[in-house]
Every structure is written in structure tokens, then in C-alpha cells.
Simulated assay, not measured.
Amino acid sequence: MRTVLVTGAGGGIGAAIARRFAAAGDRLVLSDLRAAELSTVAGQLPTEVVELPGDLADAEYAEGLVERAGPVDVLVNAAGIYPATPLLDLTAAIWDRVQDVNVRAALLTTVAFGRAHAEAGTAGAVVNISSGAATRARPGAAHYATSKAALEMVTKACAVELGPHGIRVNAVSPGFVTVDSDANPVTEAYAAAVSVNPLGRRGEPREIADAVFWLAGPEAGWITGAVLRVDGGSTAGAAGLPLHWAGRTPVQEGEETHV
């Protein structure tokens, strides 16, 4: 039985991840700013659960989370915030909070996790939750997109330095996933616009949880520093676009087409 620490476990993808590991019989340590929601999730899990509510923007809380959790085999950094803030409305305080929760906290928990395993001489696995926003900016998300791009580099940097200690660090990058969240609400118009992908549907939290579970397990034992895009193929391209020419364009022998 492993001990798995999941941040952002009070709802949405974080809660689904907690449920996936619990279904496998793992012991869970859960963190979230929302203590009531965290307790609700914990009460639904069929395994041993420890609740450690707190604000990951607080560096002291983030740095001490792994130690408070006790020996941890798997760390999942699922906590994240994505306020909608037009660029001209951004302030230092808004920017810093997004970076502190989405990037700095994941780095601090990973460093603490790495130290604990390096000292004990044991292997471990870290999985960070990124986003398609890491590679594509959008209105109102300069702070969020930047944080996820940074998180993917944090993932790679930590993989390089912790690999010699037997610690794997990877990330899962979800596409648009249906999540009922009061903390991070989205409009239906936004959801419809960003959920177009080759598979033609929105993702479900359990599908992200399955990817995280696999990356943290022995089947992915030779994978580190990777970002697994679980997005219905939206990274691959836009399947919903029409042909760029009205009908098929015949190409005669010896003729070339140029784009």
C-alpha cells in the first residue's frame, strides 16, 4: 500500500485523482484550501485518509506539507487556480497569487519530497497537473498560461535533478474537462469554444485521474520529465476546420503546390 499526497483534492480533477488511488487501496493524504470540501471528498473514500487543509500560497505551509504527511510514495500536485483577468486589469498581487499556487507550491512540495526520498534512499514519483494553456495563450489568462508553462519546465528541471535519486517527475496536461467548480467557474460559451477536438467531446475528471495513476505506477517506470497530453487530440490539431480550399485541389504531374 502506497501513501499518496494529493493537493487540490477538494473537488474536480484533484478529487477524481484521490478516488482513483483510493480504489487501488492506497492511503491518501489530501490538501486543499477549502476545508469543508476536502472533508466531503475524504468522507467518500474507501481507504485511510488524512486531511491537511491549508493555503498553498503560504510558502511555509507548502514547504512543510510533505513532512506533515509522513513518508509519501507519490506526490500529485493538482492544486491550481485560473481567475479570468484581462491583461490591463492585472496587478502584482493577482499575478503573484497565481504563480505562488500554480508554480511555487508545486516546486516547494517536490523539493521537500525529493529531500525526504534522497535521505531515505527510496524511490518515488511526482505527477504535476499542467494544462493546454501552457502552450496556447488566451484572453484573460496571461497569469494562468504563464504559470502552466513554468510548471512544465519545473517538471523537467526536477526530473533531471531528482532522477539520480530514483525519483520520477512527470506532468499530465488535460484538455477541457467537465468540472463543476465554484472556485474556478467557466461559462458554457467558453466551454464550447475550447472543447473542440478530434475526438469530439469534453474530457471527464476520471480520465485525467487514470493518466495520473498510470504515470505514478510501475508501468511508467522508465518515464520521467514527460508531459502527457490528455486532451482528446486538441494538441494534435483542429479537426473541426473545413478544407482550406473549396473542394479537393487536383495536382497535375510535375506540378507543385506551395503554402
Score class of each variant (00 low, 15 high):
20 R>C: 06
56 L>E: 11
107 L>H: 10
49 V>I: 06
156 K>A: 14
227 V>G: 02
128 N>V: 07
81 I>D: 07
247 G>E: 13
218 P>A: 15
165 H>E: 15
22 A>G: 01
214 W>Q: 03
186 V>G: 05
96 D>W: 13
226 A>C: 01
161 E>R: 14
6 V>E: 07
143 H>K: 03
236 A>S: 13
145 A>Y: 01
177 V>K: 09
89 D>G: 15
37 E>G: 02
259 V>N: 10
110 T>R: 04
65 L>A: 10
47 T>R: 06
87 L>V: 14
200 G>N: 10
250 P>Q: 12
12 G>F: 08
118 A>P: 00
169 V>N: 09
159 A>Q: 00
252 Q>L: 14
250 P>N: 10
241 L>I: 09
193 A>R: 12
55 D>C: 03
98 V>S: 08
173 S>Y: 00
98 V>K: 12
83 P>Q: 11
17 I>P: 11
234 S>N: 04
151 L>P: 07
105 A>N: 08
111 V>R: 15
41 V>S: 05
10 G>L: 12
65 L>G: 08
37 E>H: 03
109 T>A: 09
252 Q>S: 11
163 G>E: 13
76 V>L: 05
65 L>F: 11
74 V>A: 05
115 R>M: 03
254 G>V: 05
170 N>L: 03
13 I>K: 00
237 G>H: 01
21 F>I: 09
131 S>Q: 08
238 A>N: 14
157 A>H: 09
233 G>D: 06
181 S>C: 04
190 Y>E: 14
74 V>H: 03
239 A>M: 06
58 D>W: 10
160 V>R: 11
121 G>E: 09
49 V>M: 03
75 L>F: 11
102 N>P: 11
201 R>L: 07
224 T>N: 14
1 M>C: 06
181 S>Y: 09
160 V>Y: 12
95 W>P: 10
77 N>Y: 13
14 G>K: 08
216 A>N: 06
255 E>K: 15
237 G>P: 00
236 A>K: 00
114 G>F: 07
213 F>I: 00
173 S>E: 11
1 M>V: 14
64 G>F: 07
253 E>K: 08
259 V>W: 13
192 A>T: 09
8 G>Q: 13
160 V>N: 07
169 V>G: 06
47 T>D: 00
126 V>A: 02
209 A>M: 05
44 Q>G: 15
72 V>S: 06
138 R>I: 02
